[in-house]
């Protein structure tokens, strides 16, 4: 029994146990201060499902040896392009959601291939260059959103304007589609079944892929390039595959995120998308070199729950809103901490 417990402790890792304890403490504090703990937990579940795929999208790049995909906004932009196209065509419900994903994927593949070629030129500095690619693609798209010939009145600026709005409501298209699908209450907590299932489905898909011949080649190329070359693996090809997969997953991730949020956020919206995702996966025990699906699930649960609960609890305890500041400190502090220890956690 003792040894089992110790084994479990070692597998989960001390940092994660501390966070668990912290969240438990927050929950107790929330109950004491009279907040609705059940609502907080329901919100947490939604946020987990909403952000999970964005976190998962980091895994291909890490396994392919490119480190954290700071260029995540690029994938997000592809997803947004797919989404606005689906809205433009006035597709609703499941058709709208599938179309958004369906349009996003080819765009993400093309963008991913270009991104991969760029990263190949700067081998060894992917993370830094990725950050700038993410930032500059967001800036570039700020112009594009204004110029692209979308006509749907629900998306363009009101009163005869041109160009897309900063925030586009998905309410009557496919907003909250997954959240509402098969949702049920469980002891006062609402379970967003569709949303969580979709996240887990993507995780399972990735897990299956990582066990295929190609998936294993990708991981080998990332963990030891020389071993890969000596095994006849085309390392360049695998690196570009990992970038493309990362970009595609980020695109799907933002479609899921937007439907859950109910709005598409354009312009500067995607700018900082990479940071919370990276903080979450690091919290889950991943490192710059190693990441798995379990890191994604655990990290998303911990990070999102912490944020959802910490926000109202701190504001009710301190009677002032420092939660946003705390969020920035925690997420960026985590990234900084993890990046300075390249060997990573457990």
């Amino acid at each position: 029994m003792m040894s089992n417990l110790r084994h479990l402790t070692r597998n989960i890792g001390i940092p994660r146990l501390i966070i668990f304890a912290f969240i438990a403490g927050l929950l107790i504090l929330a109950a004491v201060t009279g907040l609705q703990v059940k609502d907080l937990l329901s919100d947490s579940l939604v946020r987990i499902g909403m952000n999970g795929i964005l976190v998962l999208s980091l895994v291909p790049a890490i396994q392919g040896g490119l480190g954290m995909n700071f260029g995540l906004p690029l994938g997000v932009i592809c997803g947004l392009l797919g989404s606005v196209t689906a809205v433009e065509l006035n597709l609703r419900g499941w058709a709208g959601f599938s179309a958004a994903i369906g349009f996003s994927i080819p765009i993400a593949i093309v963008a991913g291939l270009v991104y991969a070629r760029l990263l190949e030129q700067v081998k060894g500095q992917e993370m830094m260059v990725g950050t700038y690619i993410g930032f500059s693609s967001v800036a570039g798209m700020c112009i594009a959103w204004l110029l692209l010939p979308f006509k749907s009145p629900s998306m363009i600026w009101a009163v005869g304007g041109e160009g897309l709005r900063t925030t586009i409501s998905l309410g009557d298209h496919y907003g909250k589609l997954l959240n509402e699908f098969l949702k049920f209450p469980l002891g006062g907590i609402t379970i967003p079944t569709g949303l969580l299932l979709f996240f887990l489905f993507c995780c399972a898909l990735w897990y299956m892929f990582s066990r295929t011949r190609t998936g294993m080649a990708l991981r080998t190329a990332g963990s030891n390039e020389l071993y890969a070359v000596s095994s006849g693996i085309d390392v360049r090809h695998m690196r570009s595959l990992s970038v493309v997969l990362s970009t595609v997953l980020a695109a799907i991730g933002i479609v899921v995120y937007s439907q859950s949020y109910g709005f598409i956020q354009l312009y500067m919206g995607p700018l900082l998308m990479a940071f919370p995702a990276i903080a979450a996966i690091l919290l889950g025990g991943a490192s710059v070199q190693k990441a798995s699906v379990s890191n994604v699930i655990l990290g998303t649960i911990l990070f999102q729950t912490m944020l959802t609960i910490a926000l109202p609890v701190t504001s009710s305890v301190i009677e002032g809103d420092i939660s946003e500041v705390a969020r920035v400190i925690i997420s960026n502090g985590l990234i900084l901490y993890a990046l300075t220890r390249p060997t990573g956690g457990n």
């Binding site: 011949r213 294993m216 030891n224 071993y227 000596s230 095994s231 006849g232």
Partner: peptide, 30 residues
């Protein structure tokens, strides 16, 4: 080829023995 650079070319240090043994045969020969 068994390389002189055992830890560099020869092994995936963070993978189990079994994967180390079979990976090249899997990738190159299916």
């Amino acid at each position: 080829f068994v390389s002189e650079d055992r830890r560099g070319v020869g092994l995936l240090l963070d993978e189990p023995i079994s994967i180390n043994i079979i990976l090249t045969a899997m990738q190159a020969q299916g």
